[in-house]
Computed example of a mutant assay.
Amino acid sequence: MRKAARALARGGLVTAFGHCSMRVDDGHFLVCAARPMGLIDAGEPGTVVPVDGPLPPGVLGEVRMHQQIYSRRPEVQAVCRFMSPHVMALAAMGESPSARHGFSSYFYPKVPLWTDPALVRNDDAARGVAETMGAAPAVVVSGNGAVTAADSIEKAVSLAWFLEDAARVELAVRSAGGSAHVTFKHADQARQRATWEGRIAERIWEYLTAGDPE
């Protein structure tokens, strides 16, 4: 988890804000320390959080989103919340990326968007974010970044990196006047491209954790 936090920072996906977590068991998950993720030290402890119930002291209020995702999706083993620049720019327009290239195929046809710009610091809002996300691998949280979820921390981090690149491409396509172009003609095309075979997550993980102290 600490490596994931530092990887998100190394990839430019977080600055002073953001958090990631890993499921411990059916009723608990471990969230990283509540401080800038790139500054989390080797061996620095996180906090065990119940999937249901109040947040422990010192845990950031937005971690309620993690609770709601874990409670709804037993297959999810890791969650990342991040605030990357291109995702934030699109969200400021009330938009999220469409599937326009290989990395964005994982979010076909489009990333769900939670439209309330308020900080997600209460259970009702966290439930709304999780319900908007549904079974998707990510959700953009308007004005407050995005969240990814997967069956491993490596995939959750990879999806965060993919989502930022999807937003970068979306903005470039829009600025070039190409919004009407459809890259994937049907869902099967996107599913075929959105593979984890060939060490996809492993290579992203190696790239973002190279030189990590742990």
Rank of each mutant, 00 (worst) to 15 (best):
Y106R: 15
R10G: 01
A34F: 08
L55E: 04
M133G: 01
V24P: 09
V139L: 12
H28M: 08
L39K: 13
A136I: 08
W114H: 14
V120C: 06
R81K: 13
T132C: 15
G12K: 01
G145L: 08
P109D: 09
R81P: 08
P74K: 11
C80N: 12
S21D: 03
C80R: 03
G38A: 07
F82R: 03
G58T: 05
S71N: 10
H19V: 08
V140H: 10
V139K: 02
F82N: 05
Y108E: 02
P137E: 02
V63P: 01
G53K: 13
P85R: 04
V140N: 11
D116M: 04
F17I: 14
G128D: 11
S105F: 00
D124V: 15
G61N: 13
G38M: 06
Q68K: 13
P56M: 10
Y106D: 03
L60F: 08
Q68M: 13
N122A: 05
P50E: 11
M88Y: 04
G12N: 02
I69E: 02
P97K: 01
F103L: 13
A125M: 13
R73M: 09
A34S: 15
R81F: 10
H101K: 04
A91L: 07
L60R: 12
I69R: 07
A99G: 01
V79I: 15
V79A: 01
R23N: 00
M93I: 04
V63T: 07
Q77P: 05
Y70E: 08
S98W: 10
L113H: 11
G102M: 11
A91K: 03
A130L: 09
S71D: 07
P56E: 08
L90P: 04
V139H: 08
C80P: 07
V111N: 01
E95F: 04
P97Y: 02
S104Y: 09
A92K: 03
H101R: 05
A126L: 00
E62H: 06
R127C: 12
L13R: 07
A126S: 06
G58K: 07
A42G: 13
L113C: 11
L39Q: 14
H101D: 09
A138Q: 07
P112E: 10
N144M: 06
G11L: 02
S84W: 03
V24Q: 13
G53A: 12
R72C: 05
A92D: 07
V129K: 05
A89R: 09
L90R: 08
G145A: 10
P97E: 01
N122C: 13
S104W: 09
F17V: 15
F107T: 08
M22E: 14
D52M: 10
T132N: 04
Y108K: 00
H66I: 09
V147M: 05
G134E: 01
V87S: 06
S84K: 02
L113N: 11
S84N: 00
Y106H: 15
A125Q: 13
D123F: 02
S21F: 03
D52E: 14
P74Y: 00
R23E: 02
M65G: 08
A138G: 10
F82A: 14
Q77Y: 03
A126T: 04
V147E: 00
R100C: 09
M37Y: 13
L119I: 14
C32T: 15
F17E: 09
